[in-house]
């Protein structure tokens, strides 16, 4: 028997709760699907009928511009019906619990819920009580899987493979869900991951994830193929982790001078929103090595891929 006329593939989970547990093959499937989805964004009619009749609820308990907009555009390009629930206008301000809010939304029979919440583990919780497919759009300091997937997609557009690349991730390692998802994804795909930040912002057990941790930025950046800057998340900081933002920039900020230590074709990435002059100098953010806006553009394609792969199953028959 030769291969079937139409290759059919699936993710093993019906939710996307995190990168944890995803195999290299599953990650590659999402990235390959995203490659096909990206072309749709370049058409005059930027819409395909794949998710016609599916209802997707974007449930955001935390402020977000980029991620929410990106998901909404992705949903609309796939013809899904979308609904945005933002905290400011929801019953949460009247004291309703997360579970009650979710169950009430579920009662209206959506097919998928895209969830962002400030508490780690909320997506796992909802996945146990909801029938809808749950997509994690960032939960507390835990995971932000679609961000890691779009980062990998952006790297893969410019580098032949993720395996063997030196990736330096610099910044607030303690509060970053982007970091955790990226570490899990990049190590799964065989990259050499270095993480760098002030000692006060390096989680004690970070080496358990198979990364090299350092507080010397030059060491992390030297020979790097990719440098990812993380935002200093002042809103999540309860203590004084470093003396001042100015000092942070002097020691850990990405400047052109520092960047010269990296490979000549280094990529500069940032998940946004950027604090210019804190973790990254403007001339680097806007410079020739920066792929920061490509990351944003690719986010739509990657989220389309995830939505498509989790939205349901097709008949497995020849339809020539």
């Amino acid at each position: 028997m030769s291969a079937p006329a139409t290759a059919i593939t699936a993710l093993r989970s019906r939710h996307l709760l995190g990168i944890a547990g995803m195999t290299p093959e599953e990650i590659t499937l999402v990235l390959d699907t995203a490659t096909a989805m990206k072309e749709i964004g370049s058409r005059t009619v930027k819409k395909v009928p794949a998710l016609r009749g599916k209802t997707v609820v974007n449930l955001f308990f935390e402020p977000s511009t980029r991620t929410r907009t990106s998901f909404e555009i992705a949903e609309k390009r796939l013809s899904a019906d979308t609904l945005n629930v933002a905290i400011g206008t929801s019953s949460v301000v009247k004291g309703e619990t997360l579970v009650d809010t979710a169950l009430n939304i579920e009662a209206m029979q959506p097919d998928m819920i895209v969830l962002r919440h400030s508490s780690s583990g909320t997506c796992h919780l909802l996945s146990r009580i909801c029938k809808s497919a749950i997509i994690n759009a960032g939960d507390g300091t835990h995971e932000h899987p679609t961000q890691a997937l779009l980062d990998a997609f952006t790297i893969r557009e410019r580098k032949p493979t993720l395996a063997g690349l030196k990736v330096a991730i610099v910044g607030d390692l303690l509060h970053s869900r982007v970091l955790r998802s990226n570490i899990l994804l990049l190590t799964t795909m065989g990259a050499d991951v270095w993480v760098c930040g002030p000692p006060t912002l390096i989680p004690a057990d970070i080496r358990r994830f198979g990364v090299t941790a350092t507080s010397r930025i030059d060491e992390a950046v030297e020979g790097a193929d990719v440098v990812m800057m993380l935002r200093i998340q002042l809103e999540r900081m309860e203590g004084a982790y470093f003396p001042s933002l100015r000092e942070y920039f002097n020691v850990f900020g990405m400047t052109e001078a520092r960047l010269r230590l990296a490979k000549p074709d280094v990529l500069i990435m940032h998940p946004g929103p950027m604090n210019r002059g804190v973790e990254i100098a403007s001339e680097v953010a806007d410079g020739p090595y920066s792929v920061i806006l490509d990351q944003v553009a690719n986010g739509v394609a990657v989220r389309m891929a995830v939505l498509y792969l989790l939205a349901g199953g097709a008949d497995h028959e020849e339809t020539t």
Binding site: A7, I8, A36, M37, A50, G312, G313, H316
Partner: peptide, 25 residues
């Protein structure tokens, strides 16, 4: 042309494998 996203048998089941999407050029 990849016609996968226009197939009439997509999403006929709530869960399950999806056909592989390839690039249209």
């Amino acid at each position: 042309l990849d016609i996968t996203l226009y197939r009439d048998d997509l999403m006929r089941h709530t869960v399950g494998p999806q056909p592989l999407v390839r690039s249209t050029e």
